[in-house]
């Protein structure tokens, strides 16, 4: 049975190599943490349903991108059809934080004529002892670009749900207010099937599981 969802949003996850993009997405979509995984080449696809309000479900299609510079010619093709994005840096790697600006530039120059709602994510927050970027400076940077800031850990499952759900809510609000509209030939937002019956949260969890297969 087709899972019932209000909208489908396409998200893109970007950031330097080894900041933990794939791990974060896999924690979110598969519920587990892989200690090791091969570097992503090109782009990988993931998907999950989230419930932003009781009975209101959104289907997320998530593009996991390769961090290495050489793959930009491939990955930049995915900005255009994304409505939202998670921009990751590694709180234990100052350099990945310094590159946040470049990533935003890269995204903004390739998303035209659309725009992307970004969330800044400070990843690996379980490694507090090795922190090289303070929460304050990250929040300040996020504020300067009009983004929200969330710290996550895929290993300890901290704020992973929260990050994706918050971004989804933010996009949903913009869709509802008409700031973002569904457009022909644009994959960023698509409308789905409106449920007739409000499902209990247990059923929602079940259908989430099913859509992972």
């Amino acid at each position: 049975m087709e899972a019932i969802w209000l909208y489908q949003f396409r998200l893109i996850v970007i950031g330097d190599s080894t900041v933990g993009k794939s791990c974060l997405i896999r924690r979110f979509t598969e519920g587990r943490f892989a200690q090791v995984s091969d570097p992503t080449v090109g782009v990988d696809f993931f998907s999950r349903l989230v419930e932003i309000e009781p009975g209101k479900r959104i289907k997320l299609q998530i593009w996991d991108t390769a961090g290495q510079e050489r793959f930009r010619s491939i990955t930049r093709a995915y900005y255009r059809n994304s409505v939202g994005g998670l921009l990751l840096f590694d709180i234990t790697n100052r350099r990945s934080f310094q590159n946040v600006h470049d990533w935003l530039e890269e995204a903004r120059s390739h998303v035209q004529p659309h725009s992307i709602v970004f969330l800044l994510v400070g990843h690996k927050c379980d490694l507090e002892a090795q922190r090289q970027v303070t929460r304050q400076e990250a929040e300040k940077l996020a504020g300067a670009y009009g983004m929200r800031y969330i710290e996550t850990s895929a290993r300890d499952a901290i704020n992973v749900e929260h990050a994706f759900t918050e971004l989804t809510r933010e996009i949903f609000a913009l869709v509802r207010s008409g700031d973002i509209t569904i457009q022909e030939g644009w994959e960023g937002v698509k409308s789905g099937f409106v449920p007739n019956v409000v499902h209990s949260s247990e059923e929602v969890t079940k259908s989430d599981r099913r859509c992972l297969c």
Partner: peptide, 13 residues
Amino acid sequence: RQIHIDIPRTNPL
């Protein structure tokens, strides 16, 4: 640096 961070992730299992 890129090579160095990729090698432990090569055939990781």
